[in-house]
Design a protein around this nucleic acid. Structure first.
Length: 377
RNA sequence: GCGGUGUUGGUGAAGUGGUUAACACACCAGAUUGUGGCUCUGGCAUGCGUGGGUUCGAUCCCCACAUACCGCC
């Protein structure tokens, strides 16, 4: 059974949307935050812990699973869900971002991208057809088109050529996609340029995908202003009845701004990566547990949080675990940080129901930034 | 008791008669947005065992003391 989306309501004062995703595993509400599980694992967490966080879709990565263990192994296991024992919806990223982020000498041609395997230096060649074929094998619920993800600093001319090529790649990928239980999403690019985003959105929608995402944001120090522009310039051309996915975004304020602009789903490595580096997201801002001030702070990370970590452990203990490089610390913080973002989307859904999104944003900023928001990009 | 050697930041240590005492670890503080569990960026001895002396100038040379280790009686 293929995943489907239903739009339930649009907020009165903004473009905030309340929706519902139906899958064979159950029904999930949007807006939604999706944690990232690159190697078929949300780093440090068991699937039981993931269920407890009340997340819906989780991400896995085509590029990484292609290299290790290989899509044939995953397929032999019965697909990604069986392989990792996660009985919930899974979205696979196409590998386009990895080409941008970790492939050193990259060589982008019409055919595809040639680059070095980050694990052993082998020369690899990834094409739209290959990416889709791997995702078909992985049997995720949502596959992503193979796109080029240019840096925010790319020139107008470069982006113009790039979005044309990404469109041709999207078409090629769609032509070979052949998993009837899997959705395929298109990706809008175009930096912070209004005409490029419009063109990319309109042309991508013409190809008729199951959902659409906005890519190329939050890369290499792009300003928040440019990110919001990229959304604003893309969303008007996307169909109302299809899911809208803002790729890679997970800063709490960006999720709120995205929802206000009509985005349904988000993903980000930040809750788990921040956890591994000793940071916790809280109602009153991001804190660094490595700071000496938490040495004998025996309170919970966030007194308003309902997660397992906050119900059972103190800042001082978690600080000790992180300082001693114990994996339990990373795990407890991952649990908390993901729950924080999932809880944020729960509150956003409630705010949309009550047509109070803008008020919610003001209150959130007041607590999270302590009135300091706006002083930095 | 005699002789030898050493004493530099939280730690291990480099170093030189002349501007801000190398480096590493630890510590302190930042960064991290479709995840290389990688990593990056700052800060951190107003001080070179103590007290004298020589010198324009001493962490570096001289003397005494303290202290540590080694050897001998």
């Amino acid at each position: 059974m293929k995943l489907s989306f239903k739009l339930l309501k649009t907020e009165k004062n903004t473009q905030g949307r309340l929706g519902e995703i139906t899958t064979k595993y159950g029904t999930y509400a949007t807006p939604m935050f999706m944690p990232v599980g690159t190697n078929a694992t949300v780093k440090t967490l068991s699937v039981e812990e993931i269920y407890d966080l009340k997340v819906g879709i989780i991400l896995a990565n085509t590029y990484h699973l292609w290299l290790k263990p290989g899509e044939d192994i995953v397929n032999e296991a019965g697909g990604l869900h069986e392989f990792m024992n996660y009985h919930g919806p899974i979205l696979t990223d196409s590998g386009g971002y990895q080409v941008f982020s970790l492939a050193k000498p990259k060589n982008i041609s019409e055919e595809g991208v040639k680059f070095k395997n980050h694990l052993n230096g082998d020369t690899l060649f990834l094409t739209p057809e290959k990416s889709i074929a791997i995702q078909n094998q992985l049997d995720s619920d949502i596959a992503m088109s193979f796109d080029e993800c240019p840096p925010a600093s790319a020139s107008y001319d470069y982006l113009k050529n790039s979005i044309e090529r990404t469109l041709r790649w999207a078409k090629r990928g769609k032509e070979v996609h052949n998993n009837p239980n899997q959705c395929l999403f298109g990706i809008v690019q175009g930096g912070a340029h209004e005409d490029l985003r419009r063109y990319s959105a309109i042309e991508t929608v013409k190809l008729d995908f199951d959902g659409y995402s906005i890519g190329g944001v939050a890369n290499d120090n792009e300003s928040k202003e440019d990110m919001y522009k990229a959304i604003d310039y893309s969303v008007p051309y996307l169909p109302q009845d299809k899911l809208r996915y803002l790729m890679g975004v997970g800063d709490p304020i960006d999720i709120i701004e995205g929802v206000i602009r009509g985005i349904d789903i988000f993903d980000c490595v930040s809750p788990t990566r921040l956890a591994r580096h000793g940071h916790a997201l809280t109602k009153y801002g991001k804190i660094n547990l490595k700071n000496a001030q938490y040495k004998s702070d025996f309170s919970a990370l966030d007194s308003t949080c309902d997660c397992y970590t906050c119900q059972n452990y103190t800042k001082a203990y978690i600080r000790h675990l992180i300082t001693a490089d114990e994996t339990l610390g990373q795990r407890l913080l991952s649990i908390h940080n993901i729950r924080f973002l999932v809880h944020l989307t729960e509150e956003l859904r409630e705010a949309i129901k009550n047509d109070k999104l803008l008020e919610y944003r003001e209150e959130f900023i007041k607590d999270y930034y302590g009135g300091q928001y706006g002083s930095k990009k």
